[in-house]
Amino acid sequence: MTEKEPLFSAKNLKLIREPLGHSNPITVQVLGICSALAITVQLKPAIVMTLSVIAVMTISNVVISLLRNMVPPRIRIIVQLVVIATMVILVDEILQAFAYDVSKQLSVFVGLIITNCIIMGRLEAFALSNKPWPAFLDGLGNAFGYGLILIIVSFFRELLGSGTLMGYQVIPDSFYEFGYENNGLMVLPPMALIVVGIIIWVQRSKDKELIEQN
């Protein structure tokens, strides 16, 4: 490359924008579904999960991108795993130290970030063949795209399933007196799948490019 590319060139910005919209890791690539089902019962764990994934994703993307010319291709997967696992353990320790309650709620799912296909997928597909700065943006974009869906899903599940948001009651008592009841199905995992499905449906009907020709 002869001339220096600006930090926020159109190409780089696209790395952030695309995963939020039409190459969203959850709704379009359908990756990372298991954690999306498990930790979206309430908003707070979903937000903490989002932050954790952002941290793990961006840092491991940058690290792998820095290492990309040193890693022999035959052992790249194990190198990626080591990097991700290190980051995940760090995040887990930090959560346990400073946000013990949420860490309890998330239980194994912080540890399972290691197996989140989005992270591994981005390392393979992007970080291994790009410079650190684009890799950083790509990591950020994909983690945000994942977090966005997590937060939307958990917003509806907590609101309709428990009548609260972030643990505070938002549905007024007078509703309950009139016979309103929290929807128990929202708290069960199948409903997360249905809510994700509805998001995909809405997104596809808005974004015609996503509709396959067949």
Binding site: E181, N183, G184, L185, M186, L188
Partner: peptide
């Protein structure tokens, strides 16, 4: 749906 969402009813 009703059975799982509002079991008390």
């Amino acid at each position: 749906f009703l059975f799982f969402a509002y079991p008390t009813k």
